[in-house]
């Protein structure tokens, strides 16, 4: 688009902020490690306390990387949804993708136990929950894509997504009612969201999932810009609506579904970050917004995680609660200040 202004300075600012919040995130935790030791560990030096090295490389850095991937990826999927559905309130939750993931996890953690003679203890672990959640989110995504091919109206599609969300959460409630307290507790803990217990391999897998989503988003930048005018104008500009929609929905599904399956349903990031980003980058050009939203989401998630681990204490708050506590007021503040929400 015809944008004469340059955003180099804003991007520089975001880059510095990301670096700072990354360092801050890594340097805080239940074990106090001096900042100088963090720096020397990151630059490849040896540390006086061997366990510090272990904590930094095996716990804090994977967690920080997860925060970046989760925050950036969810925000990006929120941006794609808002443009595709022409709705400032769209986000990964609206399409029912996150509820699909919840349903998958709930079926594994609570549903199987309801069947006679089934013991779930044997095969419930972090990986199987992640797999169940991915299957759940992709099944919902598949149905949404089938519906999207039949229904031309994006508003109707949005409502269908909301209905899927209601249906899946109702099913989850039914299972929660009948299940044992122990299984319910497992599910509740998963639904709190967590970015702290991924192994190096899992982080790499999450990284490739987010990478694929990012590539698909970049491939659809031009179509996304055309969608800002509406479907009919986009079509008159030579854009294939069906193909582009499929591409964008797939990108969202991979991002939101993949992330939710690993980190649990994390609320508000996908909805709030695109709006917050537009406060700094006052443009609708997706070539600017895609990297900016990703960076902003990563920073916000690192900071939310910083709050969640309650500096100088051993307990960790559920990340889902923190993102809602931070994101909710931010969206309200934006609405009150600007009176109306535009996308």
């Amino acid at each position: 688009m015809g944008q004469s202004r340059s955003y180099t300075f804003s991007f520089l600012l975001l880059g510095v902020a990301l670096l700072l919040s990354l360092l801050l995130n890594i340097s805080s935790g239940s074990v106090t490690i001096p900042f100088s030791s963090i720096i020397s560990a990151l630059s490849g030096g040896s540390l006086e306390v061997e366990s510090w090295n272990y904590i930094i490389w095996n716990f804090r850095i994977p967690k920080a990387l997860t925060a970046i991937l989760v925050g950036g990826g969810l925000s990006l999927s929120g941006l794609l949804m808002q443009t595709l559905f022409r709705n400032p309130l769209a986000g990964p939750f609206v399409l029912g993708i996150s509820s699909g993931a919840s349903l998958g996890a709930a079926l594994l953690l609570m549903g199987f136990a309801l069947l006679p003679g089934m013991s779930i203890l044997g095969f419930v672990n972090d990986i199987s929950v992640a797999i169940a959640a991915s299957i759940g989110s992709f099944l919902v995504l598949l149905v949404v894509m089938l519906v999207a091919n039949r229904i031309k109206d994006t508003m109707a599609l949005l409502i269908i997504g909301l209905m899927f969300g209601s249906i899946t959460s109702a099913l989850v409630s039914v299972m929660a009612y009948f299940t044992s307290a122990e299984n319910l507790q497992r599910f509740i803990f998963w639904s709190f969201g967590s970015i702290g217990n991924l192994s190096g391999n899992q982080v790499a897998l999450l990284g490739s999932i987010v990478g694929i989503g990012l590539v698909l988003s970049i491939l659809s930048m031009k179509q996304l810009n055309a969608f800002l005018l509406g479907d009919n104008y986009a079509r008159s500009l030579g854009i294939s609506i069906k193909k582009s929609r499929l591409l964008i929905i797939t990108a969202t599904g991979i991002l939101a579904g993949g992330i939710t399956s690993f980190a649990g349903p994390i609320a508000f990031v996908g909805l709030a970050v695109p709006h917050l980003t537009r406060q700094i980058f006052d443009t609708m050009e997706h070539r600017v917004l895609i990297p900016a939203v990703f960076l902003y989401g990563a920073i916000l998630m690192l900071l939310c995680d910083l709050i969640a681990q309650l500096p100088n204490s051993a307990s960790v708050l559920p990340i889902n609660a923190i993102t809602s506590l931070v994101g909710g007021p931010m969206v309200i503040w934006l609405l009150v200040r600007k009176r109306k929400m535009l996308f």
């Binding site: 688009m1 022409r86 031009k222 800002l228 005018l229 509406g230 009919n232 500009l237 050009e285």
Partner: peptide, 29 residues
């Protein structure tokens, strides 16, 4: 030129007009 409003009212005049060049621009636009 249709009767419908742009989907995004946040577009700037110049950005909106430049979208008219889409059929001629490369894949990033």
């Amino acid at each position: 030129v249709l009767t419908e409003q742009p989907a995004s009212k946040n577009l700037r005049v110049q950005e909106l007009i430049a979208l008219g060049r889409q059929p001629y621009t490369n894949w990033v636009g």
